[in-house]
């Protein structure tokens, strides 16, 4: 128990640091793509610290409890997700059966917390943002889960344990090396882009349209918490993809090099995707996930069942 708690606390803190460093990488690479200089390494940390020191403003029309609880729910859900991933990487034997299912459920909570927060803000922009966020959630969950089931078919890991997926890949090479695995990874990459709320799927925030949408009324520490769990997601979601498709998270030498490389490649994909596209309209985003990515994910699943 003490060990599990230790892994959870260390995992959460480690994910915060890793997430904020990834945020820096995102901002720096974005800046270089746009011929700008970009921020120093610690800028994301300073931003969070600065926001934590500011006043918390709650609009008069807002539902106070929902508005202030939402960022906490989002942060704790992300921390739990990070804990599950780290636990299965550090101590595969201790991981429980079905942790993948729990993980997928827990990972919807950050988006749902933003829906609650946006709706509770009492701002029409927040309400529109919340409605878009929930549409987006419905849109991308289907292809994402189908893609992950594809990986399960490969590993024959019907225990839904992340550790079983990692063990299979340690023995037989990464799932993404197969045709169906590669397709499923591609689908998942777009899905995590939406989960991260980045362009082209940032319709729920859309600062030039909705002035931040779900975030419009947030300020000070609650906003800092939202930025923090968003940054953590930037670490958690690539880690999830590495665990499921790219050979699992390896913490021993020299496997850690491959894990780091995969992590960086996913980050680069995310950053470039967000810098080479305009924002999709919400109906276009839903169509993209349901009519394009879902069939591809189904194809991957069928291919996997056929042994490809």
């Amino acid at each position: 128990m003490a060990q599990a708690l230790g892994i959870f606390v260390a995992g959460t803190l480690g994910t915060m640091v890793l997430g904020l460093l990834s945020k820096w990488f995102d901002r720096k690479l974005t800046a270089r793509v746009q011929y700008r200089v970009g921020p120093p390494l610690l800028q994301p940390f300073y931003d969070i610290l600065k926001l934590l020191g500011k006043e918390t403003l709650v609009p008069a029309d807002a539902r106070r409890s929902g508005f202030l609880l939402a960022p906490l729910v989002g942060l704790s859900a992300t921390a739990v997700a990070a804990g599950i991933l780290w636990a299965s990487a550090v101590n595969p034997a201790g991981a429980f059966v079905g942790d993948l299912i729990v993980l997928l459920y827990v990972l919807t909570l950050p988006s749902l917390s933003l829906v609650v927060g946006g709706s509770a803000s009492g701002n029409p922009f927040g309400a529109v943002g919340a409605s878009r966020e929930i549409k987006l959630l419905i849109a991308y969950e289907l292809p994402l889960i189908t893609a992950i089931v594809t990986a399960l078919v490969h590993a024959e890991a019907w225990s839904f344990r992340l550790a079983d997926l990692a063990a299979h890949q340690a023995a037989h090479g990464p799932i993404a090396a197969s045709l169906s695995g590669a397709l499923a990874l591609l689908v998942s990459l777009f899905c995590i882009q939406a989960k991260l709320g980045l362009v082209p799927f940032d319709t729920a925030e859309a600062d030039t349209e909705l002035m931040g949408g779900v975030l419009v009324e947030y300020s000070g520490p609650p906003l800092a918490l939202i930025h923090l769990f968003r940054a953590m997601l930037l670490a958690v979601l690539p880690m999830l993809l590495i665990t499921v498709f790219l050979g699992g998270i390896r913490l021993s030498w020299p496997g850690i090099l491959g894990t780091l490389l995969a992590y960086l490649l996913i980050l680069v994909f995310v950053v470039l995707l967000r810098n080479t596209n305009p924002r999709l309209r919400i109906d276009q985003a839903v169509k993209f996930f349901w009519l394009l990515l879902f069939p591809i994910a189904m194809l991957a699943l069928i291919l996997a069942l056929a042994g490809y």
Binding site: V33, T208, P278
Partner: peptide
């Protein structure tokens, strides 16, 4: 470009 969330076009055009 900026209004459409395509900030790369924004920065490039202004450059």
């Amino acid at each position: 470009g900026h209004f459409l969330g395509y900030n790369t076009v924004f920065m490039w055009a202004w450059k």
